Lab assay of single mutants.
Amino acid sequence: MTEYKLVVVGAGGVGKSALTIQLIQNHFVDEYDPTIEDSYRKQVVIDGETCLLDILDTAGQEEYSAMRDQYMRTGEGFLCVFAINNTKSFEDIHHYREQIKRVKDSEDVPMVLVGNKCDLPSRTVDTKQAQDLARSYGIPFIETSAKTRQGVDDAFYTLVREIRKHKEKMSKDGKKKKKKSKTKCVIM
């Protein structure tokens, strides 16, 4: 069974824990209790493949930012979460993405942009803004509501699919490099 290491990042209060708990335990946590770091595991079937999701729910508070490099190193894919009623959390996505790329030393890291709290009427981040940002990053965008469960499975499952595509691409690139290195030079 394939294991996928997913990391949920975003500013404090955007609903990272609520999304994760909704996926794992099928219930909505409405009281806000700032996370330092929590880890969850769940076995699911995605596109006919049974897999184990190892999900790291991270601290959004700035005082825990020193811990970010460590979990970013171990993560295979990242859910970059903002709240649709919090423009600052949307603007912060850029910083999370840049930090992930720096730590992973790669421009090509599996990510999904997630606009959470889409059940709320007080939207300050337009869907088109988020779609445009995701398009500019070359990553999928999904709106979710941890409260109603809308888009929750889709967000995590899409990230797994992005990781699969990335692994497939990397193995193809690896095979191309191996083929090239088999060419021999004969000096007579």
Rank of each mutant, 00 (worst) to 15 (best):
T2G: 09
T2H: 12
E3S: 04
Y4Q: 04
K5Y: 02
K5W: 04
K5A: 11
K5S: 13
V7L: 04
V7E: 04
V7M: 05
V8K: 14
V8Q: 13
V8Y: 04
V8I: 09
V8T: 14
G10R: 04
A11N: 08
A11L: 11
G12H: 10
G12F: 06
G12K: 00
G12D: 06
G13F: 12
G13Y: 06
V14K: 12
G15D: 04
G15M: 09
G15V: 07
K16A: 00
K16Q: 12
K16R: 01
S17G: 00
S17T: 12
S17D: 00
A18I: 05
A18P: 00
A18C: 05
L19E: 12
L19T: 11
L19K: 10
L19V: 12
T20S: 13
T20I: 11
I21A: 08
I21L: 06
Q22G: 04
Q22F: 02
Q22N: 08
L23P: 00
L23K: 03
L23H: 15
I24H: 05
I24G: 06
I24S: 11
Q25N: 07
Q25T: 14
Q25H: 12
N26T: 03
N26H: 15
H27C: 10
H27D: 04
H27S: 07
F28S: 00
F28K: 00
V29K: 15
D30H: 09
D30Y: 06
D30G: 06
E31C: 05
E31A: 02
D33M: 15
D33V: 05
D33L: 14
P34Q: 00
P34S: 00
P34K: 00
T35C: 15
I36K: 00
I36H: 00
D38I: 00
D38P: 01
S39H: 00
S39P: 00
S39W: 02
Y40A: 02
Y40E: 02
Y40F: 09
Y40P: 00
R41C: 04
R41K: 05
R41D: 02
K42Q: 11
K42S: 06
K42E: 02
K42G: 05
Q43R: 04
Q43K: 03
Q43S: 02
Q43I: 01
Q43F: 03
Q43M: 03
V45C: 04
V45E: 03
V45T: 04
D47P: 02
G48E: 10
G48W: 05
G48Q: 12
E49N: 06
E49V: 07
T50Y: 02
T50S: 07
C51D: 06
L52F: 06
L52Y: 05
L52P: 01
L52K: 08
L53T: 05
D54A: 00
D54R: 00
I55R: 00
I55M: 04
I55W: 00
L56F: 07
L56I: 01
D57V: 00
D57Y: 00
D57P: 00
D57S: 00
T58P: 02
T58C: 06
T58S: 03
T58Y: 14
A59D: 00
A59E: 02
G60I: 15
G60F: 03
Q61T: 11
E62N: 14
E63C: 02
E63Y: 03
E63M: 01
E63H: 03
E63V: 06
E63K: 01
E63D: 12
E63G: 04
Y64H: 07
S65P: 15
S65R: 02
A66M: 05
A66F: 09
M67T: 04
M67F: 02
M67G: 04
M67Q: 00
R68A: 15
R68N: 15
R68D: 14
D69L: 02
D69Y: 02
D69H: 10
D69K: 03
D69F: 00
Y71M: 15
Y71E: 15
Y71N: 09
M72C: 14
M72H: 14
R73Q: 09
R73S: 08
T74D: 07
T74C: 15
T74G: 14
G75L: 07
G75A: 07
E76A: 05
E76Q: 05
E76C: 11
G77N: 03
F78N: 03
F78P: 02
F78R: 02
F78M: 14
L79Q: 01
L79G: 01
L79C: 10
L79P: 01
C80L: 14
F82K: 04
F82A: 12
A83Y: 02
I84M: 14
I84L: 13
N85Y: 07
N86C: 12
K88R: 11
K88N: 11
K88C: 09
F90W: 14
D92N: 07
D92Y: 09
I93G: 03
I93V: 07
I93F: 13
H95V: 06
Y96W: 03
R97W: 15
E98A: 06
E98V: 02
Q99S: 07
Q99F: 11
K101T: 13
R102F: 04
R102L: 07
R102V: 09
V103S: 05
K104P: 03
K104S: 14
D105K: 13
D105W: 01
S106C: 14
S106K: 14
S106Q: 14
S106W: 13
E107Q: 11
E107S: 11
E107V: 12
D108T: 04
D108A: 12
D108N: 11
D108V: 08
V109G: 03
V109D: 03
P110S: 05
P110H: 10
P110N: 05
M111G: 00
M111C: 08
M111N: 05
M111K: 03
M111Q: 07
V112N: 01
L113W: 14
L113V: 14
V114C: 06
V114P: 05
G115S: 09
G115I: 11
G115M: 11
N116D: 13
N116F: 03
C118R: 10
C118W: 10
C118I: 13
C118Y: 09
C118M: 13
D119Q: 07
D119K: 03
L120F: 13
S122R: 08
R123Q: 13
T124G: 11
T124D: 13
V125C: 10
V125L: 08
D126R: 07
D126W: 08
D126C: 10
T127F: 07
T127H: 09
T127R: 08
T127Q: 09
T127S: 10
K128S: 10
K128D: 10
K128C: 09
Q129D: 15
Q129V: 05
Q129K: 14
Q129Y: 13
Q129M: 10
Q129E: 12
A130M: 13
A130L: 10
A130R: 09
Q131P: 12
Q131V: 10
Q131C: 13
Q131S: 11
Q131K: 10
D132L: 08
D132W: 10
A134Y: 09
A134F: 06
A134G: 13
A134C: 10
R135N: 14
R135W: 13
S136T: 04
S136Y: 15
Y137I: 11
G138I: 15
I139F: 06
F141S: 07
I142P: 03
I142T: 04
E143A: 02
S145D: 12
A146F: 00
A146I: 01
K147M: 14
K147N: 07
R149Y: 13
Q150L: 11
G151F: 04
G151K: 05
V152P: 07
V152Q: 06
V152E: 05
D153T: 06
D153I: 06
D153C: 08
D153V: 06
D153Q: 07
A155N: 01
A155Q: 04
A155V: 08
F156P: 04
Y157Q: 10
Y157R: 10
T158N: 09
L159D: 01
L159N: 04
L159R: 13
L159A: 08
V160K: 13
V160N: 08
V160G: 07
R161L: 14
E162K: 12
K165F: 06
K165I: 13
H166W: 06
H166A: 12
K167T: 14
K169W: 07
K169G: 09
M170V: 13
K172E: 09
K172I: 11
K172H: 07
K172M: 12
K172Q: 11
D173I: 15
D173L: 13
D173V: 04
G174S: 10
K177E: 12
K177F: 04
K178D: 11
K178I: 11
K180V: 04
S181E: 10
K182M: 11
K184E: 13
I187V: 13
I187F: 09
I187G: 15
I187N: 14
M188P: 15
M188L: 07
